[in-house]
Write a protein that binds this DNA or RNA. Sequence first.
DNA 1: CTGTTAGCGCCTTCAA
DNA 2: TTGAAGGCGCTAACAG
Lengths: 349, 349
Amino acid sequence: MTIKEIAQLAGVSSAAVSRYLNGGYVSEGKKEQIRKVIEETGYQPSAQARMLRTKKASLVGVVVPKINSESISRITAGIESVLAERGYQMLLAGTDNTPAKEVEYLRLFENYPVDGIILVGTMFTAGHRKFLKETKVPVVVIGQRTSHANCIYHDDYDAGKAMGQAVAGFSKKGVAYIGVTRDDKAAGAAREDGFIAGLKNAGVTLFEENKRTSAFTLESGYESALDLLESKCDIDVISCATDTIAAGAIEAIQTYLKKQIPTNAADAGARMRYILENTSIRVTGFGDNQMLKAVTGGIPTIHFGYKTSGIRGAELLLDNIERGEQIPIEMKLGFRLVGADPSDSENLT
Amino acid sequence: MTIKEIAQLAGVSSAAVSRYLNGGYVSEGKKEQIRKVIEETGYQPSAQARMLRTKKASLVGVVVPKINSESISRITAGIESVLAERGYQMLLAGTDNTPAKEVEYLRLFENYPVDGIILVGTMFTAGHRKFLKETKVPVVVIGQRTSHANCIYHDDYDAGKAMGQAVAGFSKKGVAYIGVTRDDKAAGAAREDGFIAGLKNAGVTLFEENKRTSAFTLESGYESALDLLESKCDIDVISCATDTIAAGAIEAIQTYLKKQIPTNAADAGARMRYILENTSIRVTGFGDNQMLKAVTGGIPTIHFGYKTSGIRGAELLLDNIERGEQIPIEMKLGFRLVGADPSDSENLT
DNA sequence: CTGTTAGCGCCTTCAA
DNA sequence: TTGAAGGCGCTAACAG
């Protein structure tokens, strides 16, 4: 079904149909004829051709590192809320934490009918910088600071610092840290540096041998934590760069302790009691994951305004698109330390 | 930058440039000139215009109910793996469990340069059926059985039944069930019906007053479970239609018990011990969520082959697109009951 | 091998 | 108000 065929069937010109579709001048009579034909044929104009013509898609492309993540979904929820309100739709592309794919999808969106792009960033490669420099499409980066585009990021350093201080507050023995690649300036470098600074402020040192680097997955967190435990270092806190990693660490601690449960402790209660009585290792995270909080009762973690960053990011982008705003903007969002209150100390691990 | 400009700069025709881009006949000399101009200008052909012309996008649209879900992400991971291998990219649209939005995005993709659509289904409205009936774009539905499109779904009924039987096996008092809307035939109706059938098989009845209906969220699961607990019904199992709801139930049980902790149990260990000794309520779920398993040690749940359904779905779709396969296919995938082994009974709740 | 020509489906002057 | 005409950027014949 094309606009031409509709025009023929309705006995009018294609221009008339186009105007009908877009609210231009059409006499009542013709309006009616056209309406009927469209109704009957179930015609839908090709968004594609329309976009080729108008250079306008009412569509925003969002590139995210992974889709199964609460933080990301909070960001996209924020984006969506703004877009919906202003008549846009959102297309998502997940890159599975692969920087190369990130650039691929950026390129796709660039030559695709989207009005703008939001990149939820992890790390910047030369490819990224090249893209940001060259592209004519409005782009907003969320989650990383960059001078190559408008960006909204979180105060990872100070968050890490706050966590470091809190941890120093309740740690009696030693502290371990499971971070992520420092190529990720925000979740990798900033959180770790902040954390270490926070500890130091309180007179605590994070020893090199108590540091591990994990991928952004639960399994990887599990491995890192187990490795830490088996190294027999004297620690009572494992701080992790994300709540997902923290979940892996919690699992590792349980696995590790179970191995040592006296064989005569047959029933579940007794075994669990053993674990409880022997667990003096606390785990902390970043991100304030909802499920983790629900099930554990809440470990110390950092709440970032992810939804807010999504909202602000979308607003920035739309202003850019619609009003051609050109002043570069950088926006830093704060955080909230949660679950570190001593009264919450019934937390399992 | 258009192909025309490039052609001019290189002193050739636009057709030559097009051929250069698409591997047609171009003499070495011209090839070089064109290469240089493209290099210098950083020209990128408009995918948009190309698609308008070729009716081919190497792109698949995937509509999902929500993005922050492990099951969904397993499905999309499966889809992605097949797509990548066969030279396609994937665009995601999240509908936030809103059937109306689902249709909106289906329509968007329909008039958009995608070669096919995969719908991860929740419920079918008239709008859905109308779309499936009318559309010319190849569609595969994952997660729901339907006669209107090729579909791949999971054996929710038998999974529910298996869970019912397992629960009957370890329940000594009464059983409660927190389901989701029956408008969702798979996660709603089939799981519940199967569950009840499984219980009945073992001679156990699920009383009406022990049933609740929840949304697909943790909070909602929390509310439903708390409501159940406060109704003072005599139960020792709360079975939930999803692991997310189960997580909410676990939180609710903890909250509920905490309220009753003797005030003299001051320290964390004592309080936790109280909870343990008084918790005889087990929670079960569906979906085999990784984080839940890691943190709780694993509640009884159902593992579905989500990744497999993604893979099969994508394969089906691509065969449809590329080879014009037209034989309608329905595919039912099995499941695995996990965590119901009595030896796993150290699970917290 | 190469350029010319004719659209893909739509919107937007422009003159009527 | 209306229709004819031109073109968005690209590719696919078709002659050369």
